[in-house]
Amino acid sequence: MKLKFKGKVFKYEDNVNTDVIIPARYLNDSSEENLKLHCMEDIDKDFGSSVKNGDVVVAGFNFGCGSSREHAPLALKASGVKMVIAKSFARIFFRNAINTGLYIVENAEMADEISNGDTLSFDKGILKDLTTGREYKLPEMDPFISSIIEKGGLMEAIRK
């Protein structure tokens, strides 16, 4: 896995839906600048001003439920978020994240143990929580899915 990053954790509850990841009222403009500006603003008004490149979102069950808007993973990516760890994902968000090359990890143990504000680092498939000292080996992805992510997304995969 090529991915490598270091950043802070933004932690949320269950059922973080696409309407709060990026509210529909801003979907008349799909530019990265616009999506980044309003990402998460209805549940976390400080997200936009404090999120940095390399940060990670951690959440409970059913992350990304609701609308099919791909603007949701795109808004997180535009904000600098490198990975989303959740107890479970809603299925359209799950495939949109894969198709747009956003790393997602479905793991209840990690979602429980990692706290808001923790510093994480990720390299060579190992995620380290530098705040707690815990280490996690990422669960194996289906080869079909990881090949899409590794190529940078579905369009890149089908054009090759």
């Binding site: 099919s68 808007r69 791909e70 359209i92 949109n96 198709n99 369009m155 089908i158």
Partner: peptide, 10 residues
Amino acid sequence: TGIGSTDMAA
């Protein structure tokens, strides 16, 4: 079923 914009493009 619902899918995303990249699925639609592909």
